[in-house]
């Protein structure tokens, strides 16, 4: 029997593939799609009345449009979740909380000699919810976790109308000066970021867990050159109990 007054720490390591589609109107009005490799590492800190997750994401791969032009697209993300719950054993339960998304996307177009690099970054806050359902079947323990987040407010920095540097960026200014000059608000309705992760775990005799994870990520940043992306990923997950 676990002592629920104590905190527990776990590490989730996952790797797999992501079916990704993106459109950056600074490059083209055409969609670019492809299968990218994706990996995530998540640290979960479970306390009696609060659970925090710190998730680092990485995805990279080539994308093509329907006429065969290509680009390489990389995503680096840092996402945190905080859920509030009662101090009781993990039973079927719904937890509410909030999340902080930090997402950086960089794209390099292989067919353009100039202005072939573009990027976007945003940091935002929004509500999050997760549902946990433990299961037993033939003496084996399973668990189904689903969590989602919707970003509401934050800020964004995007490549400019033509070039990689954001409009407002100047080589003459300080780093902080450029940062504030280039920054725009992220506001739900105009901009979007939604994520859903659903995982099915099988508990191993060592108390670690092996799982399969489906992930959906949707983003859209408006502005003078809108950017949008849509990704479906399937990942193999290993959950390691640290303490």
């Amino acid at each position: 029997m676990q002592a629920y007054s104590q905190s527990t720490g776990s590490l989730f390591l996952s790797t797999g593939i992501q079916d990704f589609t993106g459109r950056d109107q600074g490059f083209s009005h055409q969609k670019y799609s492809g299968i990218r490799s994706m990996s995530t590492a998540t640290f979960q800190l479970h306390k009696p009345q609060k659970t925090e997750l710190f998730q680092f994401d990485f995805a990279y791969g080539p994308l093509k449009n329907r006429i065969g032009n290509s680009m390489n697209a990389m995503t680096i993300g840092f996402l945190t979740y905080t859920y509030y719950h009662k101090n009781k054993p993990e039973v079927k339960s719904l937890h509410w909380g909030w999340s902080n998304q930090n997402l950086f996307n960089i794209r390099s177009h292989n067919g353009f000699s100039n202005y072939s690099l573009r990027y976007d970054y945003f940091s935002s806050l929004g509500p999050s919810v997760r549902y946990i359902m433990p299961l037993q079947w033939k003496g084996q323990h399973f668990e189904w976790h689903t969590l989602s987040h919707l970003q509401v407010v934050g800020f964004q920095i995007k490549s400019g109308y033509i070039g990689a540097n954001p409009d407002g960026y100047s080589g003459e200014n300080t780093i902080m000066g450029n940062f504030f000059e280039s920054m725009e608000p992220f506001i739900i309705g105009k901009d979007w970021n939604f994520g859903l992760t659903s995982s099915f775990y099988w508990e191993l005799p060592s108390e670690n867990k092996l799982g399969l994870n489906y992930r959906l990520d949707i983003s859209g940043l408006q502005g003078i050159q809108p950017v949008a992306s849509f990704g479906n990923a399937l990942l193999l997950v290993l959950k390691v109990k640290l303490w």
């Binding site: 032009n69 067919g111 100039n114 202005y115």
Partner: peptide
Amino acid sequence: TPVFGELTNGWT
């Protein structure tokens, strides 16, 4: 400095 673009029929 030239910027590049592409058309939906495959021309750039």
